[in-house]
Every structure is written in structure tokens, then in C-alpha cells.
Design a protein around this nucleic acid. Structure first.
Lengths: 183, 183
DNA sequence: TAGGAAGTCTCGATCGTCGAGAGATCTCAC
DNA sequence: GTGAGATCTCTCGACGATCGAGACTTCCTA
């Protein structure tokens, strides 16, 4: 029945949100264990990801990645450097730039924490057949597409051009409070 | 082949992380549009969820939900009340308690923002059959179970008792830095 | 009815973040 | 080459979210 299908879709949506909450909690636990705040964790992850893709992170790009101003990034790097999680290296090619390198200890701490989760996740997926995993993968791709589109909209815009919908309340609030942000 | 299966599982893990990043971004966009910080958003969501389950939120329980001290919750509620997103009501049964009620404007702003995403998600799930959605649901349940177990471990503990593994680096760091937390 | 427990708030201090701007370096047109 | 403007990072002063300690009110129980 259509109602059941709708209920199932709603239920899956709620599961997606719960998953996000739980994954955030894993990050928070890592942060607490290492005396880091959320921004620090995001920064370390960003630096690690950049290293993996072979394009070393710089201070400026890190600021964009974690959504902080340059002043904030400077303080952030001071903290992480003081803790020994990374060190700054002047870029030889462009001496304005500061290239960020993870320390060995930070790398292994991250691998230990998140690698364990990775192993457990892989183990949990073991019972699923190749076809089933392929379906899950396709599903996740679809969902990421939708959510990603939603996340990257300009403020006040209506999510999907083809369905304007009742956006009055939201847009009104956004206009009204957009300038009062104060922190 | 086993290698392919392992690669598929790794790929699905990465998709789960990407999904989390995108969903976080949706929350951040909502926050920016309404002049809220991350804690504010988490608090509003917690109050809304509590209202939906019929067990009204109180200041104390909100503090546990978002992981802040009572002093911080007081300031948080001052902010949200000043912005008109909720109001405090003394509990008639237990007059020590402060019950939190969402304002109409906050409810509709949230519904507008996240309801749109919900609709798009449901639309994206439309092509999937009941059986396929059931599989996805089962998969998400499994993953949430693993992640949730991981998120709720005591600090310094090894994730799974049955596989002690090479936890030395992580636990050493945790002990070493556990007391230097300074924010 | 007194004593302790529970829930919230106040106060002072700390630290992460911001905006503005300085200093160093790179790029490019001349 | 040289100068002008752009780019990248850092410094400075201010603000605000959070914390720990403790006060105050209200509830529970012996």
C-alpha cells in the first residue's frame, strides 16, 4: 500500500539522521579523548584527507574547508602545533604559503580510533552479498546527491526550482535575522 | 573475489562518511540562515524531538542532550528565548523544573527547511521497491548499531572486547593528553 | 518538619572566533 | 627589471559561548 511505502521512506530518513548523530558522537569521543574541540577534529580530518589525495593542505585552504577566518585558522594551527598533531612548513615554491603536515602520532591516533570503526563496519557488511551491497551503494549515492544539493543552496533560496512550495515563513525569517548574527 | 568485496565495503564506508558531512552542511546552512550556532541548532532539534515523542524537554535534560553544563544551558535558553524560538514555562507539577516549548515561528522555520529535504529524500526513494527499501533499512540498522556501540565506549577503552588489537598508540595518547584539556 | 537531593540560575574567568589591518611574497603589465 | 595590485598568513583588540563554583528554590523522605 502507498501508506506503508511512505512510512518506510520516512523511517529510512529517520535512520539516516540517527546515523549522522551517532557518527558525530564518535567524532566527539575522539575529540574528548585528545583534548580537541570540534573545529580541531574537522581540521585534522581535512589535513589527513588532503594528504591522502596527494594535494597537501595549506592554511588558507584549511580555513575554507572548516569555514573559519584566517585569524581563527592561525590560532587553530597554533593549538594543533603546540599539541604536536601537525607542523607548519613554508612552501618552497610559494613562500607566502604554509603547508601543513600531520605528525606521526596524530596519524596513528586517528588510524587507531577510526580504523577500528572501519574494521567493525566492514565486519558488519560481511553478511551482505555483492548485489545487496551494490544496491546499498546506489541508494547512498542517490541520497548523498539529494542532500548535497540541499546543502549547497544559496541562503533564502527554495531547494528545488521545480517545486517552489510554501517558502514564505523560512525566507521571511532568513531575511529578518540574516544580519543579526553576532558571534 | 574477496578483494573486490573488501573494496566495496570500504567504498560504502566512505559514502557513509560523505553522507554525514553533507547532512552536517544542511544543518550549518540552517544555522547560518537563522543566526544560530551549532549548539543552538542541536538544542532546537532536541526540543522538537522531545515534543514529538510527547515527553516535553526540560532545561536539565537538554543539557545532557547537547552535552553542556547547566550554566551554559541557561545562557543557551536566554539566547533562544530572546530570538523568539522557544519560551520557558515553569512545570506546575515540579516547580523546580523549566519546561521548554517551541514557538510557532521556530516550528514552521524548521519544517520549511528540513521538511523540504524530507520531501526530496522521499522522492529519491520512490524508485526503490519495498524489498529494496527493507534491505536498505536493515543495512542502516546494522551500521547504526556498530557506530552507536563505538560512540558509547568509555574513553581509552578498546572498541571490541573480543579483538584487543594494537591499541597502544591510542590509549597512550589518551592517557597522556587526557588531563591537558583546556577549553 | 528537618535534612538532603534535585533543578535552575548567577557570577567571574577562560578560550575560540571575528573583523580590521599589517607584513611578506607572488604575478603581471610595462 | 620595476612597480602595482593580488594573495597568503599573521597580529591585535574585542566579543561571546562555555566552564566551574556556588546560591537559591523546590521536592522528597524519614
Amino acid at each position: 500500500m502507498a501508506e506503508d511505502a511512505a512510512a518506510a521512506r520516512l523511517h529510512v530518513s529517520l535512520l539516516l539522521r540517527r546515523l549522522t548523530v551517532e557518527l558525530d558522537a564518535v567524532g566527539a569521543r575522539f575529540a574528548e579523548a585528545h583534548g580537541l574541540n570540534p573545529t580541531d577534529v574537522r581540521a585534522l580530518v581535512a589535513v589527513m584527507d588532503a594528504a591522502r589525495t596527494g594535494r597537501p593542505m595549506t592554511a588558507g585552504r584549511l580555513g575554507e574547508a572548516v569555514g573559519r577566518t584566517s585569524a581563527s585558522v592561525t590560532a587553530l594551527l597554533d593549538r594543533l602545533e603546540r599539541m604536536g598533531h601537525l607542523h607548519r612548513v613554508r612552501d618552497a615554491d610559494d613562500r607566502r604559503r604554509v603547508v601543513l603536515e600531520m605528525s606521526e602520532t596524530a596519524m596513528s591516533a586517528g588510524a587507531e580510533h577510526f580504523g577500528g570503526l572501519q574494521r567493525d563496519l566492514a565486519a558488519a557488511m560481511e553478511p551482505y552479498s555483492d548485489e545487496e551491497l551494490a544496491l546499498v551503494e546506489r541508494f547512498l549515492q542517490d541520497v548523498i546527491g539529494v542532500v548535497g544539493r540541499y546543502a549547497r543552496l544559496t541562503d533564502g533560496g527554495v531547494p528545488r526550482a521545480e517545486t517552489p512550495g510554501p517558502a514564505t515563513v523560512f525566507t521571511r525569517r532568513a531575511e529578518q535575522e540574516g544580519g543579526t548574527r553576532d558571534h
